[in-house]
Amino acid sequence: MSAQPATARSYSAVPAQPLRKGGVRIADVVKVYGTSEAGILAVDHCTFDVPPGEITVVVGPSGCGKTTLLNAIAGFHSISSGNIYLDDELLCGPRKLKAQPGPDRIVVFQNGALFPWKTNIENVTFGPIMQGLLSRAEAYEKARDMMADAGLRGIEHNYPGEMSSGVRRRVEIVRALMNDPKILLLDEPYRALDSLTKSVMHEALLEVFYKNRVTIFFITHDLEEAIFLGHRVVIMTTRPCRPKKILDIDIPHPRDYSVLTTKRFREFMDETAAAVHEEALKAFAAGEKER
């Protein structure tokens, strides 16, 4: 891990080195909802990199358009212009505005999307069985191993609805990892959790990351969460969303919750809090105007 100096970089600075597995390059992406004349500009000429094998956290006020960006990478939404690359391969661009969803980029949803009508292990094996990559027996064996590894032994044949929401999120992450994705896209996955569960989930996510080294693209509005988890934190402006500040967090990994009380962590918080607060105020003001 490179311990770069924690300086804010201009968002237009595009690193020259080629991308490795799971790197995403967002280049000059614009998204307008509705018609170009009477539309809402959700994403405004957005450019930044998600370095491969690292955790990139995007922070911004609610409704700023950061989920739009995630949906564009996942292939749920089209973009209006610009390009998005995954490992130098074009996901979407001017000729193909909407990417094809696929198991190389798996989303973990805000409210969780384990199928409640399938047992936990049926959920976890869903990807490889649907794609015909593994037989049922092989998939079940792999799933059992992976679930045991993640501390989820013994709940294979329970339904998600019987689990706590924290456990459900972890099952969902195992379901994603079963497909050996290049990048995990997490859309405020811990938003609905209480703060105690949240802190456990953060460390669980880091553990998963240290084990698998999968690239993670994480969206949140919680600055503390962002700095705790991220190698890189991208602070977004309020709508239309554009990177306001990009920070490389040089607190060494592996991290655990003791990081929160260190001086370095506080420095990052101080450095960014003003920027985030400013955007939150703008978002609030804009909300008032709309009413």
């Binding site: 198991p103 949803f109 199928f115 497909n179």
Partner: peptide
């Protein structure tokens, strides 16, 4: 049916027909 379910299924590589069979019908 929450759109997240169909999206999750297509993320996990399910075809349109598989989404119908495994998400739409049970959902």
């Amino acid at each position: 049916i929450d759109v997240s379910y169909t999206r999750a299924a297509s993320c996990l590589g399910a075809t349109r027909w598989q989404v119908f069979r495994h998400v739409i019908v049970p959902g």
